[in-house]
Amino acid sequence: MTLNPNSVYGRIISELHGGEKLRSCLQCGMCGGSCPSGPDMDHTPRKLFAMIAAGQDDEVLRSNTFWYCVSCYLCTVRCPQEIPITDIMYHLKHQAIQAGLYTTDAVDFSETFIGHVENYGRAFEFGLATQFYLAHHPLGGLKMGPMALAMLSRGRLNLRPTRIKAVRQLRNILNKAKEIGARG
């Protein structure tokens, strides 16, 4: 079958290493049965694959399924057809972001995290907590307050980020990678 190269299905197959294995899905439900956050997904991974095959792209990209993926790879190691399911979830996040079809905070969480990495070369837990929670969960952030304090008092949160020496080198590498990624 020839797939529309711009469809969700077509993009998984052409852009993702190992993505063509999605064609061999048997709809057995091993992934859906194994997923630790399965109960909270609006569609199980298996069902999402059926929807992808049926061309329901819009509904697929609006789904919370891949945003609830915890990247634990349990589905991947159990899949009887060796479909790289976790990688497909990553790719669907990527597609949903590009299409602007997401309603989750997860993107901002990831982007805040990445912002630190790109600026400092290291993750910055305190900064992540403050920026992300202030922006998205001011009230939730209050609940987090005591927790953060407890961590601070135990020396488990640094108030300042660590910066690597070769930040410029790292940025050059990442910018180049983005450029290569964009040319496809």
Binding site: Q27, C28, G29, M30, C31, G32, G33, S34, C35, G38, P39, H43, T44, R46, K47
Partner: peptide, 12 residues
């Protein structure tokens, strides 16, 4: 026994 009831689309 954990499984996805694929006819319902939910974990059981």
């Amino acid at each position: 026994v954990t499984a996805e009831d694929t006819l319902v689309g939910r974990q059981r």
